[in-house]
């Protein structure tokens, strides 16, 4: 029950059969307004994960374990010229704050931590635990 106002329409204008196209421009892979990628579940969160790029080793455990496809990945080349993923951030529109990413993060000081929603990310990074 959460159709944004701008997507509401009337019976004479809806797609017969309730068929939804994933892409607005399939060639360019531009997702349609019907794609849930463009939907926001941010308000489901109580706490949010904050990502600390400085500590990340790009193991990608968070990427593979995230149920909500919210880790933003950049494709880079490693020293041997092989492509590899670099985590560059979190899509906060899609993150529900489950904290699985924090649990699976293996770095000695976690590179993902949960913070209250109202804490600014820069502030959170300042509060990050230091090495003993």
């Amino acid at each position: 029950m959460a159709t944004p106002k701008e997507m509401m329409t009337t019976w004479d204008k809806i797609q017969p059969g309730a068929v939804l196209p994933s892409f607005e421009d399939p060639e360019k892979k531009i997702r349609s307004k019907f794609n849930s990628y463009n939907y926001k579940v941010a308000d489901w969160r109580v706490e949010k994960p904050v990502f600390n790029r400085d500590l990340c080793i790009d193991c990608d455990f968070c990427w593979v374990s995230c149920p909500d496809s919210c880790f933003i990945v950049e494709e880079v080349e490693n020293k041997r010229g092989k492509k590899q993923a670099k985590i560059v951030g979190i899509n906060y529109n899609l993150c529900k704050g489950c904290a699985v990413c924090v649990e699976v993060c293996p770095t000695p000081i976690k590179s993902l931590l949960m913070f209250p929603e109202f804490v600014d990310n820069d502030e959170a990074l300042k509060q990050w635990p230091k090495k003993d």
Binding site: A18, S22, E27
Partner: peptide, 22 residues
């Protein structure tokens, strides 16, 4: 190349319109 979703869930705010259109 142009994927479609068939059989979406429509609740109170959409079902009536689809049935009317059908």
């Amino acid at each position: 190349k142009n994927p479609q979703t068939y059989g979406a869930q429509t609740e109170e705010e959409w079902h009536f319109e689809f049935k009317a259109s059908q």
